[in-house]
């Protein structure tokens, strides 16, 4: 009962406060309804336009998911490479840091020039935006293995692969999961931004289209949907991370 109450409070409190602030903004700003529509109007749009929005949501999810998978392949792959061959770290890490600091808008523009409005250009930008947190966290995670465990592997003359797969990687799992809090929810946001700039599908396109037609209510509907989705991903990853942290608890009891 207490647990149920506490969950209800944790979910309802932020919802009520957001709704409260929303109504206050409508009341005090004096802005027209197409700039700041009422919450019930936004929910109505979500209901009425659900077929249209779901179709584009599906397109966005595809871009975000493929980009997310590539971000992890590149991020985790590079971290493993750096662990196996430390000199590659000196060669490639500065390039990764540089890439990280290039404005996404510039990258999207270049990718659009190279590949046009395609799945490749959109998933590439999601992967480029998302791989760095995965790389950094995986590198930290691989270094987090307990020194006594590593001594144990050394005294048993374990191979690099045995030490990596049986000790270093399991210890890195919580850090890798934690990176997904950023990369997972970020993938949705970056996918929408890419679609907003270059695409004729996806939630980003829906926002762009709605803006051109002065459909503020539809912009809010998409924003609400995307925020909810990002929040869900973040919450799920956070929960999973807590379950898999060997330092704080027994993960597979």
């Amino acid at each position: 009962m207490n647990l149920g109450m506490s969950w209800a409070v944790r979910i309802l409190t932020p919802m009520l406060s957001v709704l409260g602030l929303w109504y206050l903004a409508i009341f005090f700003s004096g802005l027209p309804a197409f700039v700041i529509p009422r919450p019930e109007r936004v929910l109505d749009v979500l209901w009425v336009d659900h077929a249209f929005i779901l179709e584009h949501l599906w397109a966005t999810l595809q871009v975000a998911a493929i980009g997310f998978v590539w971000a992890n392949i590149v991020g985790i792959g590079l971290a493993i490479l750096f662990d196996l061959l430390p000199f590659t770290r000196h060669m490639l890490l500065p390039a990764a840091i540089t890439l990280r600091n290039v404005p996404y808008i510039a990258m999207i523009s270049v990718l659009m020039l190279a590949f046009g409005d395609s799945m490749l250009s959109k998933t590439t930008i999601v992967a480029l935006a998302g791989f760095f947190p995965v790389l950094v966290n995986t590198m930290q995670g691989l270094r987090a293995a307990d020194e006594v465990q590593l001594d144990r592997m050394r005294i048993l003359n374990a191979s690099w692969w045995q030490t990596f797969s049986q000790v270093r990687l399991p210890y890195a799992v919580p850090a890798i999961i934690s990176a997904q809090e950023i990369t997972g929810s970020g993938s949705i946001i970056v996918a929408i931004a890419a679609e907003w700039m270059i695409s004729s599908t996806g939630l980003g396109y829906v926002i762009n289209n709605a803006m051109q037609n002065y459909r503020g209510d539809r912009v809010y509907a998409v924003a609400l949907l995307a925020t909810g989705l990002s929040f869900l991903i973040y919450t799920f990853v956070h929960w999973l991370g807590g379950r898999l942290d060997w330092r704080t608890g027994d993960p597979r009891r």
């Binding site: 307990d146 006594v148 465990q149 001594d151 144990r152 005294i155 048993l156 003359n157 049986q166 000790v167 399991p170 060997w246 330092r247 027994d250 993960p251 597979r252």
Partner: peptide
């Protein structure tokens, strides 16, 4: 040849 065994101060038992 795996002729050595090491017992550390902190147990090296894998938590999982």
């Amino acid at each position: 040849k795996r002729l050595l065994g090491l017992v550390s101060q902190r147990p090296a038992v894998l938590p999982w």
